[in-house]
């Protein structure tokens, strides 16, 4: 196993992919705890499709992908959060509409300009070569901010996630935290999307926290466990991908699924044991 790791680390592009991917996974899993508990899981999925659309447009026009995508996806995050909060329109329907529209626009723009090449496929399902040096730098900045948020504003994140109205009444500025989480999620998704793929990136947000919730009963426990799970699953997934030449994004998702099933099994067994005793 150590032999495989050292071999992997001898390729610079793999080192970048591992570093960037680990940081993106960690951010996604921490933000995911709050998103999943607030029933905002679909926002991650919607944002990944918007990210695909804006990336295709950026590529067609010839601008740098990050400078176009990040503002567009951040805007979309604001918008999705607002429709979810106001409840004027059924939010699940609204998010599905936005996802499909962004995907459709992206596909049309791509087919009109470059044609449906392997580029499109790699955006959809991810490519290990996608992490550039700049991406890794941005991922580092992002993880410092996300870790800072969860370390120093942990209690507020808990209050806002658990009970918005109570948090508001005790004087916490709830919308600032909601916006902050949405913006950080948007950046995480843009960064992770090209590597994990537009169709797969939202699993980094959802899986670790859902898996952690099978076993852990405190909010603190779930946050720490989903952070650790995300890092472990990403690493195992990448090694699997390297050894068996499977696509990186899909491998990471399958490892996440395996851990979820394992934890679910553990939960069932422990509940069964409790009933007996």
């Amino acid at each position: 196993m150590i032999h495989v790791v050292t071999e992997m680390l001898s390729y610079p592009f793999l080192v970048r992919a591992l570093l960037g991917g680990l940081m993106v996974s960690l951010c996604a899993s921490l933000l995911g705890v709050s998103l999943v508990l607030k029933r905002y899981s679909m926002i991650g999925d919607g944002l990944s499709h918007v990210s695909f659309g804006s990336l295709s447009v950026a590529l067609a026009v010839g601008w740098s992908p990050l400078t176009v995508s990040i503002p567009v996806v951040v805007l979309a995050a604001f918008f999705l959060l607002r429709i979810t909060e106001n409840g004027r329109m059924r939010s699940d329907a609204a998010i599905a509409m936005i996802s499909a529209s962004a995907l459709a626009i992206g596909i049309i723009v791509t087919s009109l300009t470059t044609g449906m090449t392997t580029d499109v496929s790699s955006y959809m399902f991810g490519s290990i070569l996608a992490m550039s040096r700049d991406d890794v730098r941005l991922a580092a900045v992002l993880s410092v901010i996300v870790l800072g948020l969860f370390l120093f504003c942990y209690n507020k994140v808990f209050a806002v996630t658990f009970d918005e109205s109570f948090a508001k009444a005790t004087g916490v500025n709830v919308s600032v935290y909601n916006i902050l989480i949405a913006v950080l999620t948007a950046v995480t998704i843009v960064l992770g999307m090209r590597m994990m793929g537009a169709m797969l990136i939202s699993s980094l947000i959802i899986f670790p926290s859902i898996t952690a919730m099978r076993i852990f009963k405190s909010f603190g426990g779930v946050v720490v466990a989903s952070g650790i799970l995300s890092v472990v699953c990403f690493f195992i997934g990448m090694m699997f991908s390297y050894v068996y030449s499977t696509p990186a994004g899909a491998s990471v998702v399958v490892v996440n699924l395996a851990f979820f099933l394992l934890f679910s099994l553990f939960q069932v067994i422990s509940q069964h044991g409790k009933k007996k005793s």
Partner: peptide, 25 residues
């Protein structure tokens, strides 16, 4: 303030102590 219990809280992973101390926020 004691708000109405929300859908979110029904399966929220949190200990009683974590919930109570959040009142001090």
């Amino acid at each position: 303030y004691l708000p109405q219990q929300t859908e979110v809280q029904k399966d929220f992973p949190a200990t009683v102590f974590e919930v109570v101390i959040s009142g001090c926020l």
